[in-house]
């Protein structure tokens, strides 16, 4: 089991996830008998402080999307705890920690005001039959906050804030480029003045130059609106650029979490080390010393015993094959799940 994150030094926590699990049943046959589970998220623990960005990286299929969607219960988590410091749910207006997984429907709807989401796919995340104005207004309409005139002004100012123009209001999503669409998605996420934004690969589908614009925009908005981000991505350079702290996922588990400088300079988990070594650098004279990982990413419906990374780890010892390592705080604010974290000397960049 995971150490409770409670014992570390943590102040100003906005979101704290403990032991989150999401298993998808695998059904077979006519009667849809459950023959197994895809352990898409299998023990994720992390926390996000107010005003900071936590990056969440990992290979494709490791459960990043599932984790972020489980946090706001787009998927109903199998187990775990999601603590969020909510304002709207506290009677005296002072922020109070609530466990999202224990809220009823009505309370959950209210909390959604404070947690917004930005999606990866700029084409699929906007309804093609709605105008830009309707798309951005939708969160307000849902929460009964839409007032003619006033809200339109807010929408226009949001649109301008993300770099679009008021005369785009009556257009439809297909008339915009990928980058512009992602800006519409960002404007929509900000419509209710959230405090936490879950960004699921917001720049992965964008071009290099548009990606830079969007990253800058997200950073500017964070300052202006005092936002906190959970920033999911698979591109380590992007994550490092935008994040204060980074959590690395491998097959449904967070295996390491630290501030981004610390993580890149002194990784403590062998998987992080291998991942960092494989990142291609935009420098033709750089000679990479890539660490070759054996084999394939583990199958989340049939994960290996012990440490999930052991079949590919070059520091594996016998203990790793039987005993799953705990996620523990090895240095202040540096968490890792590896038996040999203290003894190994791993190479960062």
């Amino acid at each position: 089991m995971t150490d409770s994150l409670q014992n570390g030094k943590k102040d100003n926590i906005l979101l704290e996830v403990n032991g989150l699990k999401k298993y998808f049943p695998i059904q077979k046959g006519l009667l849809r008998k459950v023959v197994g589970y895809v352990k898409a998220v299998d023990d994720v623990s992390l926390y996000v402080r107010e005003g900071e960005t936590l990056g969440l990286v990992g290979e494709s299929g490791c459960g990043k999307t599932t984790a972020s969607r489980s946090i706001i219960r787009l998927y109903e988590p199998t187990a775990g705890q999601v603590l969020f410091k909510s304002r709207v749910l506290s009677p005296d207006g002072r922020p109070r920690m609530v466990n999202l997984l224990e809220l009823n429907r009505e309370q959950m709807t209210k909390v959604r005001e404070e947690i917004a989401m930005i999606f990866q796919d700029p084409i699929n995340s906007l309804n093609p039959r709605m105008t830009v104005a309707d798309i951005i207004a939708e969160p307000m309409v849902i929460h009964g906050k839409y007032q003619k005139g006033r809200s339109e002004e807010i929408i226009i100012s949001l649109l301008e804030r993300v770099g679009l123009r008021a005369d785009h209001l009556r257009r439809y999503p297909h008339e915009f480029s990928g980058g512009q669409r992602q800006r519409i998605g960002i404007a929509r996420a900000l419509a209710l003045n959230p405090r936490l934004v879950l960004c699921d690969e917001p720049v992965s589908a964008l071009d290099v130059s548009i990606q830079a614009q969007t990253l800058n925009l997200l950073q500017d908005l964070q300052k202006d609106f005092n936002l906190s981000y959970l920033f999911v991505a698979h591109d380590l350079s992007v994550v490092q650029h935008i994040s204060d702290r980074i959590a690395v996922m491998y097959v449904g588990k967070v295996v390491e979490m630290a501030s981004s400088e610390e993580l890149y300079a002194n990784p403590l988990h062998p998987y992080t080390e291998a991942l960092l070594s494989a990142v291609p650098k935009p420098d033709p004279l750089y000679k990479s010393e890539r660490i070759i990982m054996q084999g394939d990413v583990a199958d989340p419906s049939n994960p290996p015993s012990g440490c999930y990374f052991h079949p590919r780890c070059r520091y594996v010892i016998d203990r790793c094959k039987t005993e799953a390592p705990a996620f523990r705080e090895v240095k202040p604010d540096h968490w890792v799940a590896c038996h040999r974290a203290e003894e190994l000397q791993l190479k960062g960049i």
Partner: peptide
Amino acid sequence: EREYALAAKSFGAKDRR
């Protein structure tokens, strides 16, 4: 499974909507 349906849900939209 389209993300725009999920997006509406993430903002608290009811099933009917």
